[in-house]
Simulated scan of single mutants.
Amino acid sequence: MVVRSMLPDVEIPPVSVHEYLFGDLTGDELDRVAVVDGVSGAQTSFRSLLAQIDAVAGAVAARGFGVGDVVALHAPNVPAYVPVFHGLLRAGVTVTTINALSPSPDITKQLLDSGARLVITVSALLLAAEAGAKGAGLAHEHLVVLDGDSAVAAEYTSLADLLADPHPAPEVSFDPATHLAVLPYSSGTTGHPKGVMLTHTNLVANVAQCFAIGVERDDVVPCVLPFFHNDGSSETLESWTHARDHG
């Protein structure tokens, strides 16, 4: 017996995450608030967020990363996570998100298994990221520290360094239904952690499904789950999209 929802079927457009979330923003929508940092209260508009996303996409593309490459993002819920995550997707990169609490041996395993060629982390997690990257055979220049707030972190490329020489966002082409957007890893409850292969269409579908929950104009959706977890990423995508479509 097939049980159908009482709600209308959800339309899932065949587009990338970037195009679905940001592709049709115009006029006043660009000046609406996209993200609020719960700690500092700092607000980022869609216009500013898009500029940051394009800057990150251009920077990683200029360093040779694009469709077919995997980059590891190892950070807690910080404001920089947003443009970096979406900048990587904008460049066609697959993002493998690493648990902020992972010890270095687990980081090494995930880097090797995912085939990541670059690790982006923060100062507070640098020691684990550094050891994990070394174990995976990644050289010094393949580790970027978002904030660079410590003497040790100063030895590495920071986000500011990465963006110092501006490059335009690249033109990329891929099939959203088959191209991996995100490669998070399971907790390993029944064995070793396994990569969960999520395409752009998977994420677009997840966000499209959220439209039925009834978020209205000017509602604020708190993003309390860790961004490195798929549910955290989905929750965040949901809030940005509702802010756009109901603004």
Rank of each mutant, 00 (worst) to 15 (best):
L203C: 13
F85R: 01
G135Y: 15
F227L: 12
A129N: 09
A42G: 04
D69L: 01
V35Y: 12
Q110N: 06
V82N: 07
S233R: 03
V215R: 01
T241I: 10
V152L: 12
G188K: 00
P76N: 06
P193F: 12
L159G: 02
Q43G: 12
D219P: 01
A164Q: 07
L88R: 00
L89Y: 14
L21R: 00
D149H: 00
A169W: 10
S187R: 00
A131S: 09
D54N: 01
G137V: 08
L118S: 03
R117A: 15
L101Y: 15
V145C: 15
E238Q: 08
V95S: 06
G195D: 15
S123I: 09
G23A: 07
F65E: 15
A61P: 15
A133G: 07
L237G: 06
T190E: 07
G68R: 00
P8H: 05
L21M: 12
E130H: 01
D31A: 01
L126G: 03
N206R: 01
A116Y: 13
G214K: 00
V2T: 14
A75Q: 15
M6P: 08
Y81H: 05
F211L: 07
L73Q: 13
T190Q: 14
K134R: 14
V196E: 08
G195R: 02
V78D: 07
V3P: 08
L163W: 11
G66D: 10
A59K: 00
S233Q: 13
A116E: 04
H18P: 12
A205N: 12
L126K: 00
G195A: 08
Y81F: 09
Y156D: 07
D106C: 05
V152K: 02
D31S: 01
G214M: 06
A133D: 13
G58M: 05
A208Y: 15
V119N: 12
Q110C: 11
